[in-house]
Design a protein around this nucleic acid. Sequence first.
DNA 1: CTAACTGCAAATGGTTTGCAGGTTG
DNA 2: CAACCTGCAAACCATTTGCAGTTAG
Lengths: 142, 142
Amino acid sequence: MSCEKLFFEEMKKRGYRITPQREMVLAIMHKLEEPSTVEDIFSHVQDISKSVDISTVYRTLELLQEFNLVSEIDTGDRQAKFVLVHDHSPHLHLVCKSCGKISGIHLQNIKSFSGELENQLDFQIDWQDVTFHGLCSTCKQK
Amino acid sequence: MSCEKLFFEEMKKRGYRITPQREMVLAIMHKLEEPSTVEDIFSHVQDISKSVDISTVYRTLELLQEFNLVSEIDTGDRQAKFVLVHDHSPHLHLVCKSCGKISGIHLQNIKSFSGELENQLDFQIDWQDVTFHGLCSTCKQK
DNA sequence: CTAACTGCAAATGGTTTGCAGGTTG
DNA sequence: CAACCTGCAAACCATTTGCAGTTAG
């Protein structure tokens, strides 16, 4: 299902309203290829309309997270980053502490490990909330 | 090696000084069985001495983290929590979103999974920084 | 002695919130 | 037209920082 369709359906289902600001943020999230800070997203919003407030961006991102359209990444810095979840299914993220690169991993790719790990720990993990910090393949060779 | 010995050695090695405030915080971390907020730790400090400032507690906790004596847990709330690492070896933490229980897991216990996962992801994970959020064994049955 | 540490007070800064007015459905 | 949403401005608040005085080694 396309992002927009999913978006409209979820909005309707929950009695939320479609507004220009919300559509704008969703559209911008599509354009941004890298996980971005709220400031980044906000500045793109301002390129389109100066009157939109950053608090609306925060509120919209929260909404999009509810629908699994966007996920939040704990970068270890003060500011979080946000990315579109292209296939609308949960991801986990890898943040390289050396080069800063962020990768999204589809949970399907680690399904066997994640299941085993959950059994071993006897704990059901919210994988979409997971961000691993460490070294990416390039940086760990150095 | 005992905490105190490790502490003194690391301090000496780096040219840091032993102060009553630092010893006090380390001693309190031994007493606290549960991961605790800085406010909690600070109030225990104040039971001993009213003159110690919370900024010193923050600074000391940072120090203890350098030595792997204490680890920081992202509770998902605004405030972080801190616990003594009893065996001075890296842990990861599990935070139950239902009952709030926090468990520490020795990395040795998940060594086989962690290795496989790192291979699969082609990413070297800083496991001591990992906090999984989800449901503990008790809560997931409900 | 002197570099390191502390207490104090103030700043930080990303995020949240209250509210009056504007919009969506 | 009623509930929902937005912009604005102010509050939040855990954590950090600058600095002058204190202390460990």
